[in-house]
Design a protein around this nucleic acid. Structure first.
Lengths: 242, 242
DNA sequence: CGCGCTGTTGACTCACATCAAAACCCGTGG
DNA sequence: CCACGGGTTTTGATGTGAGTCAACAGCGCG
């Protein structure tokens, strides 16, 4: 096994709440391995019974669902520290797919151990619930974005959120962070057409609010961006991870 | 206390998984009371620190967020059995408001006991996580609806979901169920204008797919409605509740 | 009876979708 | 070194689904 929980690189990040050595040891016991995937690889498939759960260690990905007519809705962007497969854990079946955008390293857990893990260590179970609550919070805001914000507000909101995540993972240097997605991904996340998303990005670039090109996002003044996004700029709260 | 957990009316419903008498007793210990509210009463306020969590016992309500510009996004409709305040439970602060649409009865728990509840009974903690996963699933589909479905598809989808919930709670009789919301509420849930929602409802009525008026929803052929909604008609899985 | 709230309908407008083509970027292979 | 091809981004022209505006109808209630 390449990475040991007790020396997990994520623990160093300021994003996460502290996890005690004891908890790490317990987590270690349930870790069944590590998975490395190439860009473009599907990690979980909507509607299938996933035998394994993951925590993203390195790399980025996408969660999405596909409608019968072929339209794709991007649910969320996957960053290091994200827990993948909660639904598979409790309900047995995923309601969305997960795909690696860059090369990714994932921490693997067996679904069959999930309940045991929960019982044997309630405080880690509590952490999982915490993560679920954070996700619920995020999905609620996303819904508000797609439903109520105009194109420019929506794009500004999305870039701000992505930038905030980057900040907490210490990916930001000189107001820049890597953001290796396609414009199509953002368009599918916001329910906009690719063309309109592109034009809206250009508008934000012209206005000096946010520049995203060649896989790099630059935001000089998050406060101003937040204003356009109809939201407040405030750092994300710490959260636990598994 | 009006209702005792061990004789909780929800246990009779086919919607829910069985909860053992033992578990009910434990739940009872953490129940701190019962709350009855009138129509229109706010139950939780976005951004505030809620000292209490609830499970809806009777009546219906709405979850929603409000943007700085005044637009409202309805996140979900609240039905009996729904758990309210998970976010307040773990993060201390709600990200959306909850309001009673009809008169409601709510089962009250103290937030201060939440963690203790979790630790003292991991299997109930597991149930809470389950509920969170179900909610996450639902929010994902909602996002897909608002982002990708056309107006008629979206309205059909929403009415179908509401109807399914009604079925499981045994609210449906002769293809009819009570649905005491305003068209504005549905519009705000789907990110559509009130006027367009109204016209779309009329279209569904004309096509004999779904009729919603005077607070009563009638669906004669859910399969056909599902077809318009770009989804499959399948009964909702059982889920636990608190 | 009059007021406030919700639902309904028609006329007009616009933000965003769709269509189409070109530019760019980069890896491959001749 | 350059030609080629697929994926992505960019730009312009045109179309339309849904928003906005406005007026009215129905209904419950004081």
């Amino acid at each position: 096994m390449a990475t040991h929980c007790e020396s997990c690189p994520l623990h160093k990040s300021t994003l996460f709440t502290d996890v005690s050595p004891e908890d790490r040891r317990i987590t270690q016991r349930f870790k069944s391995g590590e998975l490395m995937v190439d860009p473009g690889t599907p990690v979980m498939m909507e509607g299938t019974n996933a035998p394994q759960l993951y925590t993203a260690l390195r790399g980025m990905g996408l969660r999405y669902t596909t409608l019968p007519n072929g339209e794709r809705q991007v649910i969320n962007f996957v960053f290091p520290g994200d827990f993948i497969g909660l639904q598979a854990g409790v309900m047995g079946e995923m309601s969305h797919s997960v795909e690696a955008t860059t090369a990714m390293t994932l921490c693997v857990f067996d679904r069959s151990d999930f309940f045991k893990f929960f019982k044997s260590n309630p405080s880690r179970g509590y952490d999982i619930t915490w993560l679920a609550a954070v996700e619920e919070h995020f999905l609620g805001s996303s819904l508000a974005t797609v439903g109520q914000r105009s194109a420019i507000e929506a794009v500004a909101w999305a870039l701000l959120k992505l930038f905030q995540r980057g900040e907490q993972l210490a990916l930001v240097r000189q107001a820049k962070m890597p953001l290796p997605f396609r414009q199509q991904d953002l368009a599918d996340a916001l329910g906009l057409s690719l063309v309109h998303t592109n034009k809206t990005l250009a508008k934000l670039r012209d206005r000096q609010l946010a520049a995203w090109s060649n896989g790099v996002l630059q935001v000089n003044d998050p406060e101003m961006l937040a204003e356009v996004a109809l939201t407040e700029f405030e750092p994300l709260p710490k959260r636990p991870f598994i």
